[in-house]
Amino acid sequence: MVESIVLMFENIVLVVFFSHLLVATFLCSLRTGNRLSHKLFAAYLLVAVIDLSNIIFNDFYQAYPNLDMLRYNISLFIGPTLYLYVKAAIYNDFKLKIKHLLDSTPYVIACLVMIPNFFSVDNDSKQLWYDNFTDVPELTFIHFMTFVQLGLYLLVIYKHLKRYRKVVVENYSDAERLNKRWLTQLIFLFTLIYIIGLGRMFFRFSIYHDYDYERLVQLIMIISMLLSICWILWQALHRPELFTGVNSTIEVLDEVAARQEHSNAPKISTVETEKYEAIVSRLRDYMPQSKPFLDPFLNIENLAKQLNLPSSELSYAINRIIGQHFFDFVNSYRINSAAEMLIANEQQQKTVLEILYEVGFNSKSSFNTAFKKHLLMTPTQYRKLHS
């Protein structure tokens, strides 16, 4: 029974190893889309491949223990590569800089920690380390540092995803740009694997150390990695352009308000309030007359140019005076226009799909979601109700 479990574990690791390697090679070969984000995600997959390689090439690493220790510490690059990938995916102006080399600092620290009692000793002494793996302070320190570091990176990643959503709803009207669901799900999967890894660490280093339980949790973690890469492949096959980035210099209103509060800037005056109310009045006249919302890629900057206004003032008027995000504000006009077309006698021959493209939407799913949000029913139900 035990031998069959071990064999199954090794086979799954082999599948995970080569699937990660295959996807990483594919991403590096792509010449379209966000090539930097592709390469950074490939880097993450390669780090995972190297981290798993000791299970497949155990005999090789036993012959070269120094190389094995360098491999053991490679997991300290999982957090940085994942973090840099997310930034490259959500910010279309992201570039790698010299300062990003600082993300390798934990790896350097781990290697330095191992110099006195591992890299500087003979192979027999190194073997003693392997025989007493859980009792070696240096290895315990590296293990805990790895999980603390990865946990912090995951928190920062979730913070960036939250900020991305705010930037989109305040400045863009195309729902495809808002579609961060796949990336959020991806990070959720990594978080799940991280939590499973914490369970493995518990059974390895706590007073409840149990090798069988540790092996079982490791098996669950490897299976989770296999399911994750299968899910990634499924997403890539069905949606080649998974993500549309935004400019990282765009501020969300909460950040602007926080900066003004920190600088003790005076609150908005009565004169300025009247100015923004005038902008709102002008905007409400312009939207139904010129119908800029018919442009599926309308954003706050383009609309501001049409009105000959600073984009910051227009954004403040919509988000603060009207009390809607730009995304919802524009979609409300699209939905109202679609609702009129759905029940108009001369439009009865048009399908829902034709109408949604005419009013500025570029996907059926985003149209149905927005329509139900604004009118509490689907487009088909609305048309039947008013027929």
Rank of each mutant, 00 (worst) to 15 (best):
F144D: 04
N179R: 10
L161C: 10
V156F: 13
Q127G: 10
K162W: 12
L152D: 12
I98T: 15
D103S: 12
H100D: 13
W182K: 07
M114N: 12
K99Y: 15
C111K: 03
K166N: 00
M145T: 02
Y164H: 02
I142R: 13
V136I: 15
S173A: 08
D124Y: 11
D131I: 07
T140V: 06
L155F: 12
R165N: 11
G151T: 01
R181S: 13
L178M: 13
Y107G: 02
V156D: 07
N171F: 08
L161F: 01
V169A: 00
E170T: 01
I115P: 15
K159L: 13
N179M: 04
E170S: 05
M114T: 11
Y172V: 00
P106E: 15
I98P: 10
N123I: 06
T105S: 14
D135M: 12
V169E: 03
L154E: 06
V168S: 00
S173P: 07
P137D: 15
K180E: 11
L152H: 00
L161P: 01
K99N: 09
V136P: 03
M114K: 05
V136R: 10
L178C: 02
A175E: 12
W129M: 13
E138Y: 06
R181K: 13
Y130A: 07
D131H: 08
V108E: 09
Y107S: 03
L161N: 05
Y153W: 05
H100E: 04
E170F: 10
K162F: 10
D135K: 09
V136N: 14
D122M: 03
M145H: 05
K162P: 03
I157A: 11
A175L: 03
S125T: 13
V108P: 08
E138W: 08
S104H: 07
D174L: 06
D124S: 14
H143D: 02
K126V: 04
N171C: 03
Y164S: 01
F119W: 06
F147Y: 12
A110W: 06
I142E: 04
F118G: 04
V121L: 09
M114P: 11
K99M: 13
Y172R: 00
I98A: 05
I142T: 05
W129Y: 15
P137V: 12
